[in-house]
């Protein structure tokens, strides 16, 4: 079956643009307008991958990602962040976005699709606390 993607984005126009793009690339695409809506959609149907904006009303992307990661049932869903924030602004949230690829708006459609394909092939984030993820040798 085609992989399903949940797109969480508060801008309706951009939501439409990205979902058209994803469907044309062969994905099933569900959308949500903020983090809270996103969590409800995830609870109803667990997607294979999540694309999330960061600055959103009701519940922002950081909180949304934090909750997804904290729940063992959803912790391993791969996430891609699409944001209009600057790298400097993102730096203060470095720790929250560990293991999450971040694409800056305006993004390149090809780059987005490549990132999605790569994540779907390798699977979700690797687990392990800070003590165990060191690379030896």
């Amino acid at each position: 079956m085609m992989p399903s993607i949940l797109l969480v984005e508060d801008e309706a126009d951009l939501r439409l643009a990205v979902s058209v793009r994803l469907r044309s690339a062969g994905f099933r695409c569900e959308t949500a307008s903020d983090g809270k809506d996103g969590l409800e959609k995830v609870a109803r149907h667990r997607p294979d991958l999540v694309i999330a904006d960061l600055l959103m009303p009701v519940m922002d992307g950081y909180e949304f990602i934090r909750i997804l990661r904290a729940d063992p049932n959803t912790a391993d869903i791969p996430i891609v962040v699409l944001t209009a924030l600057t790298t400097q602004a993102l730096a203060s949230h470095q720790a929250d976005l560990r293991d999450v690829p971040v694409l800056q708006k305006p993004f390149d459609a090809k780059e987005l699709l490549d990132t999605i394909h790569a994540l779907l092939t390798t699977g979700g984030p690797r687990h392990g606390g800070p003590e165990t993820d060191s690379h030896r040798g």
Partner: peptide
Amino acid sequence: TMVSHELRTPMSTVKEFAGIIQEGI
């Protein structure tokens, strides 16, 4: 930061739709 943020989102929409039409989707 705010202005750049506000500009980037509509720019993404423009770019995306231009791409979608251009690629014949």
